[in-house]
Design a protein around this nucleic acid. Structure first.
Length: 336
DNA sequence: AAGTCGGGGAC
DNA sequence: GTCCCAGACTT
């Protein structure tokens, strides 16, 4: 075990963080609104993936009151491709509640934040500590991994008792400045104490780490096989635009747009589209698709509308891309 | 306690 | 292919 040099784990970690933290846009200030948006976007999402969404989102909705009045269609469009779409609906709900309950601002304590939609234990702790300096924990997947290794916790971390055990360990470790400490733990997990091939030789707190098998931690239950669903997608086109339907307002891809799953009544001709399999966390869609030409219809959405206004899930994007190429070819052929 | 809810990057 | 990500919510 390496020499601790009388320094505390916290001191070493904070020094490491100061020197090595990624310079992230939403860390440039402590605007609670920005912290909140970035934390919601970061849920189950890699930081690099949400960064461009964050920039676009705060441009569209620069403050909490503007978000409270957001148009639902535009809101979903701003979230298109990011996944877990209930997050953006809860954002607006939360903004409205803050206007009604907290004078148009986010509350400053973890306890109050947890009462708001979309804000659970982690996010409440993150906002309270990072934006407001409250000395509370913010335990995300990174922190669970870091502490399961630091204390060689070999119990299933998805169990309530293990969560409580780790929460206790984290709580006992908290120090000031809390906003730096909480972020340092997460940064360590993201950059050094990684799920695979952890860089223990570069770890600032290796001297305090009790495990000799970091790659086996944290322990989680085996994942169950995802179910497979077969679908046939019919992309109706009038040669200019496409017919699309809004999905139900609950369930998978709620409120987003999709193509049809049935043939229209009157068909001019059809063309096959490339099959595509889309993998979700717990379900797999194996899709065949057909482009169906129908007579001109004023009710169809233009390519421009679909691109700029409708939230189209990634699961259907390949069909849209191929179909628009085919109708472009069609226009070229007619010119000849 | 278990299931639902997206998408993609790293391996 | 697998894993899992600055998780929250419903059942």
């Amino acid at each position: 075990m390496q020499e601790r040099n009388d320094m505390t784990m916290q001191t070493k970690l904070l020094a490491w963080y100061e020197a090595n933290a990624r310079k992230l846009a939403f860390r440039q200030n402590r605007n609670p609104y920005f912290i909140w948006i970035s934390e919601i976007m970061a849920q189950q999402t890699r930081i690099e993936a949400m960064l461009p969404y964050f920039e676009n989102f705060i441009r569209l909705y620069p403050d909490l009151p503007s978000l409270a009045q957001a148009d639902d269609e535009s809101l979903h469009k701003a979230w298109e491709g990011l996944g877990y779409y209930s997050r953006c609906r809860n954002l607006k709900k939360c903004a409205i509640e803050c206007v009604e309950r907290f004078d148009g601002r986010l509350p400053s304590t973890k306890a109050e934040l947890k009462t708001l939609p979309g804000i659970g234990d982690y996010t409440a702790g993150a906002i309270a500590s990072i934006a407001f300096g409250e000395k509370v924990s913010a335990i995300d997947g990174n922190v669970v991994r870091v502490f399961s290794r630091l204390y060689d916790v070999r119990a299933d971390v998805t169990k309530a008792a293990t969560k409580k055990q780790i929460a206790r360990l984290v709580d006992d470790s908290l120090c000031e400045p809390i906003e730096a400490y909480n972020q340092a733990l997460m940064e360590l997990g993201a950059m050094v104490c990684t799920p695979k091939n952890p860089k223990c030789d570069q770890c600032p707190v290796a001297a305090w780490c009790q495990t000799d098998e970091p790659e086996t931690l944290p322990v989680k239950p085996e994942k169950k096989a995802r179910r497979v669903e077969r679908k046939h997608v019919y992309v109706w086109t009038d040669g200019k635009g496409f017919h699309m339907n809004r999905r139900p307002k609950t369930g998978l891809l709620a409120n987003l747009y999709e193509f049809d799953e049935t043939m229209p009544d009157e068909v001019v001709r059809t063309e096959p589209l490339a099959p595509y399999t889309h993998i979700f966390s717990h379900v797999e869609w194996q899709m065949d698709a057909t482009l169906v030409f129908v007579k001109e219809d004023a009710g169809f959405y233009s390519v421009d509308q679909i691109e700029n206004e409708l939230a189209l899930p990634s699961a259907f994007a390949p069909f849209f891309e191929e179909a628009r190429e085919k109708i472009d070819e069609d226009v070229e052929n007619e010119k000849e």
